[in-house]
C-alpha cells in the first residue's frame, strides 16, 4: 500500500469504524459464537457423563447382580442415575406391576415392559439431543449472516469510492477489510458449531444404539423370567 496513506488497521479500529449494520452483525455473531461454545462444553460434559454412566451400569448389569437389587439401587440413587439406569428402572417397575395382575399373559407383560422402556428411552434421547439443533443452526446460518455484513460493508465502501475523483486501492481497501471482519466472525462461529454438531450427533447415535440393544436384551431376560 502507499506508505503515505496511514490507516490504523488494528482489529479494534476496524470494528469501531465499521457501519452500524456491520457492527450489529458482528455483535449477533459474537453472541451466537458465545452461546454455541457454551452449549458445546455443556453437551460435551453431559455426553461424557452419560457414556460413563452407561458403561458403569452395563458392567453392573452383566456382572450377574440380582435384578431387584439393581432396581433398588437405581431407585435410591436417582440423582446420579444414568439414562440406561432409568430405562431399566422404568422397565422393571412396569414388569413388577404387570406380573401382579392375575390375568396377564406373557405377551402382554413383555409388550408392556417394552413400551415402558421405549417411553423412557425416547425421553432420554430427547434430553441428550437437546440444544444440538442450536449448534446446527448456528453452523449453517452464521456464515450467511457474516456474508451479509461483508456485502453491506463492501457496498458502503464502493459508494464512498464514487465521491473520490481518482479511484485508488487505498480508498477502498480499509472498507473492504472492515467488511471482511464480519465474514471471519461468521466462520469463527460456524466452524466449531458444525464440528461439534457432527461429533455430538454421532455420540448420541452411539448411545441410542447402546440403549436400544440394552432394551432388547433386558426384554429377553424378563420374558425368560415370566416363563
Amino acid at each position: 500500500m502507499n506508505p503515505s496513506v496511514n490507516h490504523d488497521m488494528s482489529i479494534l479500529s476496524l470494528v469501531s469504524g465499521a457501519s452500524v449494520i456491520v457492527q450489529v452483525v458482528l455483535l449477533l455473531l459474537l453472541l451466537a459464537s458465545v452461546f454455541s461454545w457454551y452449549y458445546i462444553f455443556l453437551k460435551y460434559f453431559a455426553l461424557r457423563r452419560a457414556h460413563n454412566l452407561a458403561v458403569e451400569f452395563e458392567k453392573q448389569f452383566w456382572s450377574g447382580a440380582d435384578l431387584k437389587d439393581l432396581h433398588q439401587r437405581a431407585l435410591s440413587s436417582r440423582e446420579g442415575a444414568g439414562s440406561m439406569e432409568r430405562i431399566f428402572e422404568a422397565g422393571f417397575r412396569e414388569f413388577m406391576k404387570l406380573r401382579k395382575q392375575p390375568s396377564m399373559d406373557v405377551r402382554a407383560i413383555t409388550d408392556g415392559t417394552g413400551r415402558a422402556m421405549r417411553a423412557t428411552y425416547q425421553r432420554e434421547i430427547e434430553e441428550l439431543e437437546s440444544n444440538l439443533s442450536f449448534l446446527a443452526s448456528v453452523g449453517s446460518v452464521s456464515p450467511y449472516v457474516g456474508l451479509f455484513g461483508t456485502v453491506w460493508g463492501i457496498m458502503n465502501s464502493f459508494r464512498g469510492l464514487s465521491n473520490v475523483a481518482q479511484a485508488t486501492l487505498a480508498a477502498v481497501a480499509p472498507g473492504i477489510a472492515e467488511a471482511l471482519v464480519a465474514t471471519a466472525m461468521g466462520l469463527f462461529a460456524a466452524i466449531p458449531a458444525v464440528m461439534a454438531y457432527n461429533w455430538f450427533a454421532g455420540d448420541v447415535n452411539r448411545l441410542a444404539i447402546r440403549y436400544d440393544s440394552f432394551i432388547e436384551e433386558f426384554s429377553n431376560i424378563l420374558q425368560r423370567q415370566v416363563n
Binding site: 496511514n6 488497521m9 488494528s10 482489529i11 458465545v34 461454545w37 457454551y38 452449549y39 462444553f41 460434559f45
Partner: peptide
C-alpha cells in the same frame, strides 16, 4: 461451560488484538 466459553472468546480477542498487527505506521 460458561466460563470456558468466555475464556475461548477472551483468547480469540487477545489473539486478534495482539497477534494481528495490520497497522502500517510509517
Amino acid at each position: 461451560a460458561r466460563t470456558l466459553a468466555i475464556c475461548v472468546h477472551g483468547l480469540l480477542l487477545l489473539l486478534l488484538i495482539f497477534g494481528v498487527s495490520w497497522t502500517n505506521k510509517p
